Amino acid sequence: MRLATPLGLGALHMNGWAQGPTQAVRMQVGATPGGGTDIVARALAQAMEAELRRSVVVENKPGAGGNIAASAVAQASGDPNLLLLAYTSHAINPAIGIKQNFDPLKDFTPLSLVATSPLLLVCHPDLPVKSTGELIAYARRNPGKLSIAGAGLGSASQLSGEMLKAQARLDIVSVPYKGAAPAVQDMLGGQVQLMLSNVATVRPFLESRKLKALGVSTKERLAAYPEAAPIAQVLPDFDFRTWYGVLAPQGLKAEDAKTLEQVAIKAGRSDLVKQRLEHEGLEPVGNSSAQFKAFIDAELKRWAAVAKATGVRVS
């Protein structure tokens, strides 16, 4: 998914805030250290640091589906020294009723969509199916006998799994987990049979044939897994992906917003970041502020429709 447009990102002409005191820029991350979101944040921060010529410090503030970190940035109106590495839950949380003290679009200045990732529909190798179509047929012959893991309440993994069940009209037991790691472990042990997961999480188990890929959540195949046909070939309009992007508070001076946008784009397109993202199974994007704003707006509507169709809510 490449939405980037040429912006003349040769030498960046710093002015205003960018030429001022060398106060460190702090990037808030609503996830624990070491996970996929944190990896993206640290790679991006390193590249942005080189462009800004000032420190960019990653601060992990996990909890509430990323809302703790997002709230800190939303309340820092006009401050160019506080950024947010947002991810898919930023658009999912309001759809499923997670309380927020901010507007996920109006209280931020979108800078750039850094990367997206398709989800792979994977199963335990003992399951006698090789594709999404075969899975649907098998599940209909065996109602209530299969289970699907969700990697966190309100995650893209959970909601896309619920949408799979709803669109295909399947009786499959949903099993919620507190993250991808315990979900995958139970899959390996045969306690659950199915999961929609990001590529990086399941790649080693696909390579060792401890798991099997049945389909991909986007409308394009993955070169690394050509056997996993788009689920949309069986269930029209099925199209989900996880994403990561960088936001600043609303109320920035125009020149500061433009500088941060250009820095975020150039960092996201850098070889350092692209190589790190691709190693994690992510697809680099690096688009403009306007494109990222339109993307978030579309994601808010997409996940609201999914929540309505599946009935997923946080009580």
Rank of each mutant, 00 (worst) to 15 (best):
A91Y: 03
I92Y: 06
I92C: 11
I92E: 03
N93I: 08
N93S: 10
N93C: 13
P94E: 15
P94D: 15
P94F: 15
A95P: 08
I96F: 10
G97Y: 12
G97M: 11
G97S: 08
I98Y: 13
I98F: 13
I98R: 15
I98W: 12
I98V: 15
I98E: 11
I98L: 15
K99L: 13
K99E: 14
K99M: 09
K99W: 13
Q100K: 07
Q100V: 06
Q100L: 15
Q100N: 10
Q100W: 06
N101D: 15
F102R: 09
F102V: 10
F102W: 14
F102D: 14
F102I: 12
D103T: 03
D103V: 04
D103F: 08
D103C: 06
P104T: 07
P104K: 04
P104R: 07
L105P: 04
L105C: 07
L105W: 05
L105I: 14
L105T: 09
L105E: 11
K106W: 03
K106L: 08
K106A: 14
D107W: 09
F108D: 04
F108W: 05
F108S: 04
T109V: 05
T109L: 11
T109Y: 04
T109R: 05
T109M: 12
T109D: 07
T109K: 04
P110I: 01
P110W: 00
P110L: 00
L111E: 00
L111A: 04
S112T: 02
S112L: 01
S112W: 02
S112G: 05
L113S: 01
L113A: 00
L113Y: 02
V114G: 00
V114W: 00
V114I: 12
A115M: 00
A115W: 01
A115V: 00
A115K: 01
S117W: 04
S117P: 02
S117E: 06
S117K: 02
S117C: 11
S117M: 05
P118L: 12
P118E: 14
L119K: 03
L119V: 04
L120V: 11
L121M: 11
L121R: 03
